[in-house]
Design a protein around this nucleic acid. Structure first.
Lengths: 256, 256
DNA sequence: TCCCAATATCACAAAATATTTGCTACTTTT
DNA sequence: AAAAGTAGCAAATATTTTGTGATATTGGGA
C-alpha cells in the first residue's frame, strides 16, 4: 500500500524528468537503494519503465498515464458513491453489462443484494470480483487483454457483444466535453458502442473530474444515456449546456 | 492458508456426515465457534453449503468435489513438474493455448523465459497470472463462467475457438481409461475438442492419479496428442495398453 | 402471545501471518 | 577496480485471522 504510493511517485517523477538515478530516487523517497531497485524491477516487469544502469527511464508509450491499477486509486470514494447509487437502477434477475474502467467496475461490489443476476463484462477487475460470488451468473467477453484498460477488447469481444442482450448497461467515460463523451482509444470506443447497442437501458458513471476534458475519439452524445451519474454538480455553464442537450444528469452528493 | 485447510476439512467432514453443528466443528478443529461461523459464512457465500440454525448442511450439488480452488492444492508439486517440462515444447513467439484445469494452468508460471508469446485461454487462473506480465499477448476466450472449473465455457467460448489458431495446445484431463481421455462435463469436453482442432501440436498433462479413472463423457483417444506428460510411470499393464494404442507417453520423474 | 434459552452477530483487541524493507556479502558490468 | 546490481536473511510493518465478551435475533414452548 505504501509501496504502491511510492511507485506511483516514482512514475510521476519520471514522467517529469524522463529519467532518474537509483540514488536520487532512494534519497527522494527516503528508502534504501535496494528498495528502489525492487520498485524499478516491479515497474519494469509491468512495462512502465526501462531499467538502465544506474537508474531508470520511462517508456515513451505513455502506458502509465491511463493505467488502470494506478487510476483506480484516485477518487475511490467518489466512485464508490456513484456505484452505490447506480445499482438502484437494477432489479433482481436482470442482465447487467459493465464496461471497462474503474468507475463502472465499482458496481461489482454492490451487486450482492440484487442476486440472482447475470453480469456481462470485459472488465477483468469485475470478473475477479464476481468469479467467486454465488447467485451471479458471470459472462466474460473474450478478446485481447489490454493492460492499459485492464479488460478485453478486439474482434472476439465485439463478436461476443453482437450476440448478447442486456437489460442495463453501466458505462464509464474518460472525458466529457460539451454534451458528448470521448475516449482516447478506438477499440474501447467500439466495445462501448456495442454495449450501448445491446442494452435496453444505459447509464453513464463519471466522476466530476472528467468534465471539460476531451480525448481523441467521439463516443456518443450524453443524451443517449437514460441518466448520467456524477459525484459533484458541474459548473453552471456546463450544466446549462447539458440541460439544453436534453441530458438527464443525476448528481450523487457526498451527503446523499 | 491455514484457514483454507480447515475449510476444506469442514467440507470433507460434511460430505461424510451430511450436516454438522457449529459446536461440533469448533471442537473438532480446535477453534472458536466464531471462527466456525466465519468459515461457514464464507463457504456458504461460495455456494458449497447451506447454513442452518445451529450448524450447516451440504448442498446436494456436489459442486465441491471438483472445485478448482480446492483441487488446486492437491499434487501441486507434480503439476509444477509437469508444467516445467511441458514448456520445453514451446518456442518464443509462438501462440499457445491453455485449457481449464490446474494442471495445464500451471504452465502459465513457466512462460516468462519464452517471451514474446501469445497465449489463448479460458482458464481464469491463467488469465490472472498473465494479465500483468509484459511480453505476453493474452487472449481470453469469453463465455459463461464456471465456478466448478474456474474458467469460461459455452457458446461464446466455442465461437471464439472456431476463429482462432494456435501452434501448441496444452490440455489436461480428469480421467484416463485405457487409451482414452474422459471428462465429467459436456461443455468442457466441447471446449477441449475445439482447442485440439485449433492447434497444430497438442500435449496432454495428467498427474498419475488420473489413470484408471473414468468419467461420463469421452473426450479423445490419447493417440491424438503429440505427447502425454505424466508424473509417474503407470503400471506395466496400463503402460502396455498405451504403447499398443500408439500413445507417446513422457514420464517426468521427480529426479528429472 | 410472550418469554427465554440457544444461536448468531458485532466490534474490538491479540495473535498469527505475510509482506516489505534494509543490511551485508557476493556477483556482475563497464 | 570501482560502481552498480543481486541474493539471502532478519527486523520492521502491515494485513489477516482469531477469540472474547457484549449485544441482537431466533424459534419453540408455556
Amino acid at each position: 500500500m505504501k509501496s504502491d504510493i511510492r511507485r506511483q511517485g516514482i512514475m510521476e517523477f519520471l514522467m517529469d524528468a524522463g529519467q532518474a538515478g537509483v540514488d536520487d530516487l532512494a534519497l527522494l523517497f527516503g528508502v534504501s537503494k535496494m528498495t528502489v531497485h525492487r520498485d524499478l524491477d516491479e515497474l519494469e516487469e509491468s512495462g512502465f519503465l526501462r531499467k538502465v544502469r544506474g537508474g531508470a527511464s520511462i517508456q515513451p508509450s505513455g502506458l502509465f498515464e491511463s493505467d488502470f491499477r494506478y487510476r483506480q486509486k484516485q477518487a475511490i470514494e467518489e466512485k464508490q458513491r456513484l456505484a452505490a447509487a447506480a445499482v438502484g437502477m437494477i432489479e433482481p434477475g436482470q442482465t447487467v453489462m459493465i464496461d471497462d474502467g474503474s468507475t463502472a467496475g465499482g458496481i461489482a461490489r454492490h451487486l450482492a443484494d440484487l442476486r440472482p443476476l447475470t453480469v456481462i463484462t470485459n472488465n477483468l477487475a469485475v470478473i475477479q470480483d464476481l468469479a467467486g460470488a454465488g447467485g451471479i451468473s458471470l459472462i466474460a467477453l473474450g478478446g485481447q487483454y489490454s493492460k492499459k484498460f485492464h479488460g478485453f477488447f478486439g474482434l472476439l469481444a465485439e463478436a461476443s457483444l453482437k450476440s448478447l442482450r442486456a437489460d442495463v448497461a453501466f458505462l464509464s467515460s474518460s472525458a466529457i466535453h460539451g454534451a458528448s463523451a470521448f475516449h482516447q482509444d478506438q477499440e474501447v470506443v467500439q466495445a462501448k458502442r456495442l454495449m450501448m447497442a445491446a442494452a435496453t437501458r444505459k447509464y453513464l458513471l463519471v466522476d466530476h473530474g472528467k468534465f471539460g476534458r476531451t480525448a481523441l475519439h467521439f463516443l456518443t452524445d450524453l443524451s443517449a444515456f437514460d441518466t448520467v451519474f456524477t459525484g459533484r454538480a458541474p459548473e453552471p455553464a456546463m450544466r446549462a449546456a447539458l440541460d439544453a442537450a436534453g441530458v438527464s444528469l443525476t448528481v450523487i452528493d457526498k451527503g446523499s
